[in-house]
Amino acid sequence: MEKLPKLGIFSIVIIIVLVIVLAKSAVTVGSGEAGVLYKTFGGGVVTDEPPLGEGFHVVAPWNKVIIYEVRQQEVFEQLKVLSSNGLEIQIDASAWYLPVYNDLGNLHQSLGENYLQRVIQPAIRSAARSVVGRYTPEQLYSSKRDVIQEEIFEETKKILDNQYVQLNEVLVRDVTLPNTIKDAIERKLKQEQESLEYEFRLVTAAKEAEKVIIEAQGKADANRILSASLTDKILQDKGIDATLKLAESPNSKVVIVGGGDSGLPIILGNN
């Protein structure tokens, strides 16, 4: 009878141990995540095998699994950088990134879970300072925003390609200049626009004048050619034709051929 309680206590202890071991061994990797396996007695971080994918996994209770998000993520940066002439410019930018899936073990071993602060943000800041320093505030404010966005992306990507991180995009959302510089640039752009508009009006007026001259010249040439082709005989024949047509009118009664100047007919009416 005394053995039963001892057996029951032992069974309970075994069950508790099994539950603890199972809890330590069971790992669930969520959607959009991956797990890096750390073998306590087997060489540390596993870098020569793919990470643990989504779902349920069982590992030795003395090992660890470090969970990483492997979906695309975004980091927002508000930077104060200097332009080519030394003026301070504020740039609001964001970057889309994600860890390289098959290199997740190397990423964990070399940079750790806070790789964003250790390498991505410093890379973006360094690239932004380098790129913006090549341009004037006017270029940054107007025509070069897309260019500097692409250049920041390329320079940041060069750094991160060797850091087990994939950079997908860098977006320059806003460029803020000192108010005095911004006002001066806007005035200059307005003046340039007005100048272009005035030049357009001059060109349009010149084309209209040229068109009028060409039309007048064409009419003058046509009249000159027509005048040169008309002879007295042609004019006389035309006059006879016109007179005969008039004679056919009900108001015309008598036609005397050859009675007028140059031999043209004379029409005598009722009156």
Rank of each mutant, 00 (worst) to 15 (best):
D232H: 09
I12L: 15
E186F: 00
A127S: 08
V100A: 09
V165T: 03
D183V: 09
D183H: 06
Y135K: 04
V58T: 07
E54G: 03
G263T: 01
V100T: 11
N270W: 05
S262C: 03
L18K: 00
G43Y: 00
G112Y: 07
A23N: 11
E150C: 05
L4M: 10
G263Q: 00
K3F: 13
D103R: 15
I267C: 08
A220N: 14
N85G: 12
S262H: 10
Y164E: 04
R129S: 07
L171K: 14
I240G: 05
V147R: 05
A95D: 01
N168R: 14
E49K: 15
P99M: 08
K253E: 15
Q191A: 13
P265Y: 02
V58S: 05
G42H: 05
A184W: 00
Y141Q: 03
T231F: 06
L116G: 06
L37P: 07
K219N: 13
I181P: 01
A93N: 07
L98H: 15
G258R: 08
I120R: 02
I213Y: 10
L22N: 09
I240K: 06
L167C: 10
E49C: 05
L7I: 06
I266S: 08
S142T: 14
R71W: 05
R145D: 09
L111T: 00
K157H: 13
Q78A: 13
N168K: 15
Q78Y: 07
L116Y: 05
E74L: 07
V147C: 05
E69H: 05
A209M: 12
A206F: 07
S262T: 03
L202F: 03
S11H: 08
K157R: 14
D261W: 01
V65K: 02
K190A: 15
G53H: 04
V203W: 09
K24P: 02
L189A: 12
F200Y: 13
N102I: 03
L82M: 14
E138W: 00
A95G: 03
N179A: 12
W96S: 11
G269C: 09
G44D: 06
T28M: 13
L160R: 04
Y101C: 06
F10D: 13
V132I: 03
R224F: 06
D232W: 14
K64H: 12
L52E: 00
T47Q: 00
S83H: 06
P61Q: 09
A26D: 11
K80P: 07
I14H: 01
L171N: 14
L171R: 15
A184F: 01
Q121M: 07
Q191T: 07
I67W: 04
G86K: 15
R145H: 08
T180Y: 05
Q121P: 02
V70E: 01
L7S: 12
I256H: 11
D103G: 04
L189N: 09
L79E: 11
K157S: 08
S195T: 06
F10N: 07
E138R: 07
S195P: 00
Y115W: 08
Q121F: 06
E33S: 04
N114K: 10
